[in-house]
Design a binder for these strands. Structure first.
Lengths: 128, 128
DNA sequence: TTGCAGTAGCGAAAGGTGTCGCTACACTCT
DNA sequence: AGAGTGTAGCGACACCTTTCGCTACTGCAA
């Protein structure tokens, strides 16, 4: 019972997505090199995971060239947003931005990030 | 291979935690009523899930009384924070508060929440 | 005391994730 | 042609999550 557009990536899938976001479109070799460095898993495993992710629509690949080139089918931003929406939904069931921020309070942020956050808040205040 | 203090709740476990956060300490009957309303699962299933969650330390129970009373072993806030930290770690590998905010930008926030966010940013700026 | 209702628990099984071994195909290079 | 190297994929398996059926215990009512 899998919902249509909302295939949340699992742990390893997310690791692969992160690698793709960082590296950009890459052949399996390169993805595997990173993944193996972190987890020590086999080449076959990486390949299989990519295959599974293909069926879930999490990645796309160019089969014209050889080796095939894989790329993430979702952007980092979109994925993050999806996670957050689900998090708020699951944990707070409803909008609770202030609580999320509260949770973030412990983490350190650079001056630049804080500035940007302020700008964003200003923008949010304007609309809606 | 499960890390020591970081037992991330699975999907159903999270649903149960959410129910407990909302209801407060409750007997299985009450938890099950909610869960069954959402998923239509059996009483045995709820009971088993609670048992599993006991071994993981996600819930605690008072066995003195009958029926036993279950309560969440973690607060909503702590759980949310854990999720967020993991999210940032997994998706952005490192601090990226502004990006998280970016992701949140689409969601609507009340004036009060925005105010609170501003106050929080001020506080964060002060320290560290 | 027997029977019923509510409660607790165990063990099995179904489904999903992550892992790999083994096979096959292509493309060199000799 | 044959050997060697890089690439792709299938099928099996181990492990975890989620599900339930069946059993057992408790306490109260007939």
């Amino acid at each position: 019972m899998r919902e249509l557009g909302s295939t949340q990536p699992t742990a390893v899938e997310l690791e692969i997505l992160r690698i793709l976001w960082e590296l950009g479109p890459s052949p399996v070799r390169r993805i595997h090199a990173r993944l193996a460095a972190e987890k020590g898993t086999n080449y076959s495993t990486t390949l299989k995971m990519l295959a599974v992710m293909m069926t879930k629509g999490l990645v796309k690949r160019d089969e014209e060239v050889s080796p095939h080139i894989y790329r993430a089918a979702v952007t980092r931003e979109r994925a993050a947003k999806k996670f957050l929406v689900e998090l708020i939904d699951k944990v707070y069931e409803g909008s609770a931005m202030s609580l999320v921020l509260q949770a973030l309070a412990g983490s350190k942020a650079s001056q630049a990030e804080i500035e940007e956050a302020r700008r964003l808040l200003d923008a949010m205040e304007g609309q809606s």
